[in-house]
Design a protein around this nucleic acid. Structure first.
Length: 613
DNA sequence: GCCGTTTTCGGCCCGACTGTTTTCAGTCG
């Protein structure tokens, strides 16, 4: 996978909120520019690690600095700490600006070309004055690059090809659902080939990352050459990527109209270290190698080799658990392998027992034709029932959300009657032993609403009507650009209302489309915990909201959750899978999630606020 | 530039591949 296409930071708006993500982006750009400049790789790495640390921190770093309580962040020492402080207090970072003046930020675009790294980019800039993609392409076509040290006519051809490829197919990351679907198909396809003992998707798919760049497939076989040859010949394989990753036991391919596939063969019976290595993350692997070194070993995908005998045969492991055990660690679930404290937890046997999909008994957020759902209420409810759930909450939109055909109070009452009749039928069928196969005899459709928090900070229904719902899910779809104080005031109204059980998709983000709401998150979590209002982990793949970082921060603040599909059609029930995946990445255990409760307990819980159990 | 059961200096993760090489640097995952 070519590195991600990184545009220079848009600094047109210096007043843009200094979120952790923006601070991290600035530190990353500093690292890139230093790299091109030819600075020590350790210094460059230090900025990258610091950026990473800021990005994944649960606290609002800018706010913490402004309040005079800088958080302890791994990789942020005196020098970088001072730069962050200057940035968040003055809104400017002269060091960064000076670097941008010295090294043209447009050079970052060159790094997206396969085979072009910071050294090459720096070299063409220094010797030929090239700073942009078109300039590089022209120079390559004119044969100017071959005069540079380490570059030849062959390199020029590769660069021209790489630029063309980039224009034809800009790198993009798949959403979680698409990635898992494709990975499943690829694995099934590969397992059908002769000589294949097993295949498994590793990489970020296996860790359930919210977006995925390419697919890494491990193939257990004793005949790697034959298997890879057969694979390359399949009609669904569009092309064999040139050069990047060839060799006897690995191959880089591309699915027709699909993502890049990195295929790695591993010898049967010694798959433990391969799985660990290719599942990652990079940070997790680094931490593991550190640990191996402390114990006198060097760790790679092939296994462990003694530090004092590099020529020794690697010690191999049949299973991941064996490798972890050798390093005195409990086996770490793939979702936790991000270098966020999982090694320490595994060392002390304090890994959480993560929630499983099978532990969800109900779903608290779904829509139908009555508002903006794409299927009739009856169709949605029958499929939820057939899926074996104990309860489904129908939460069509409230009246002010006209664009989604929100329900007036009169339509709410009409819908209540329809739901009542359906539940009567379900009860009748249960007592007659007529419950359909796969359905839970106790299944009930619960009546909820997705209650709009209006721009002027009111709730969209009167309290008496709110009290009549089984579940009230409050959310904010309009007036997203309001200043932080106003947004917080709106959320506070909802959180303090005794009938509001759940705040839905709290950050309001859409992945890759629009950013989070500007909230005082610490205060938001505190209020949710204090009022006993549940926070939703919304599993629709464009949202995944709360995200994994916020989930952990909210947990630490004492919050509790529900995991919901926000389904608008039957296919959307799969969102529950994605929601559970993200929850697991947020270290969530079943006891933190209200919709793991049996139906009656859940109904009772939702009648009482604060919701604590 | 960061960090410390190798602690204030001297390290800093690993292997494979590529290209232009006579021993290695750059790129990638």
């Amino acid at each position: 996978m070519p590195r991600e296409f990184r545009k220079p930071i848009d600094d047109a708006d210096p007043a843009a909120a200094l979120t952790n993500a923006r601070i991290a982006a600035i530190l990353t750009e500093i690292a890139d520019l230093l790299d091109i400049k030819g600075e020590s790789s350790f210094k460059v790495g230090a900025y990258r690690r610091a950026a990473d640390s800021v990005a994944r921190s649960g606290v609002d770093v800018a706010q913490a600095y402004r309040e005079g309580e800088p958080p302890r962040l791994k990789g942020v020492g005196g020098s970088i700490g001072e730069r962050i402080e200057e940035l968040v207090t003055t809104g400017q970072l002269p060091y960064h600006e000076a670097l941008r003046a010295e090294v043209p930020p447009t050079l970052l675009e060159l790094l997206a070309i396969p085979g072009v790294g910071p050294r090459t980019a720096g070299e063409v800039w220094r010797t030929l004055g090239i700073a942009t993609l078109p300039e590089l392409e022209r120079a390559a076509c004119d044969g100017q690059l071959r005069q540079l040290k380490g570059l030849s006519a062959k390199s020029e051809a590769r660069i021209i090809e790489g630029i063309a490829e980039l224009e034809k197919r800009p790198p993009r990351r798949m959403r979680i659902g698409e990635a898992h679907g494709l990975a499943e198909r690829a694995v099934a396809l590969i397992e059908s080939l002769p000589g294949v003992a097993s295949a498994v998707a590793a990489g970020s798919v296996r860790r359930w990352r919210e977006t995925v760049g390419d697919l890494d497939i491990l193939v257990e076989t004793d005949e790697p050459a034959e298997v890879l040859e057969a694979l390359r010949a399949l009609p669904v394989i569009e092309s064999v990527e040139a050069g990047v990753r060839g060799g006897a036991d690995r191959s880089t391919l591309r699915l027709v109209d699909g993502p890049q596939l990195d295929i790695m063969a591993m010898p049967a019976g010694s798959t433990g270290s391969y799985l660990v290595h290719f599942t990652g993350s990079a940070e997790h692997n680094v931490a593991l190698r550190h640990r191996a070194r402390e114990r006198g070993w060097t760790l790679s995908e092939h296994g462990l080799v003694p530090l004092d005998d590099a020529a020794a045969q690697p010690m191999t492991f049949a299973a991941e658990a064996d490798l972890y055990a050798f390093l005195d660690l409990a086996e770490i679930p793939p979702e936790l392998r991000e270098g966020r404290g999982e090694i320490e937890a595994a060392e002390h046997d304090e890994l959480p027992r993560l929630i499983e999909r099978s532990e969800l008994r109900g779903d608290c957020h779904s829509h139908s034709h009555w508002s903006d759902g794409r299927e009739p209420l009856e169709v949605m409810v029958e499929s939820a029932r057939a899926a074996g759930r104990e309860y489904q909450v129908l939460t069509d939109h409230s009246q002010s959300l006209g664009i989604a055909n929100g329900l007036t109070p009169a339509r709410v009452e009409a819908q209540r009657r329809v739901i009542g009749e359906l539940n009567e039928r379900f009860a009748r069928e249960a007592s007659d032993g007529q419950t359909p196969d796969g359905a839970d005899a106790g299944f009930r459709l619960l009546h909820g609403t997705e209650l709009e928090i209006t721009t002027d900070g009111r709730l969209d229904y009167a309290d008496e009507l709110l009290a009549s719902f089984d579940v009230v899910v409050a959310s904010l779809h309009v007036g997203r650009q309001q200043p932080r104080r106003q947004l917080m005031a709106r959320y506070e109204t909802a959180l303090r209302n005794p009938h509001v059980g759940i705040i839905s998709h709290p950050s309001g983000r859409k992945i890759g489309v629009r950013p989070d709401l500007d909230l005082d998150w610490e205060a938001f979590y505190r209020l949710a915990a204090e009022t006993g209002t549940l926070l939703e982990i919304n599993g629709s793949e464009a949202r995944l909201d709360l995200d994994e970082h916020r989930i952990r921060a909210a947990t630490e603040a004492g919050c509790r959750f529900v995991i919901d599909s926000d389904a608008h059609e039957r296919d959307d029930w799969a969102h529950l899978d994605w929601g559970v995946g993200i929850a697991r990445r947020g270290w969530v255990t079943a006891d933190l999630v209200a919709n793991t409760l049996p139906r009656d307990e859940f109904i009772t819980l939702m009648r009482e606020k604060p919701h604590r159990w």
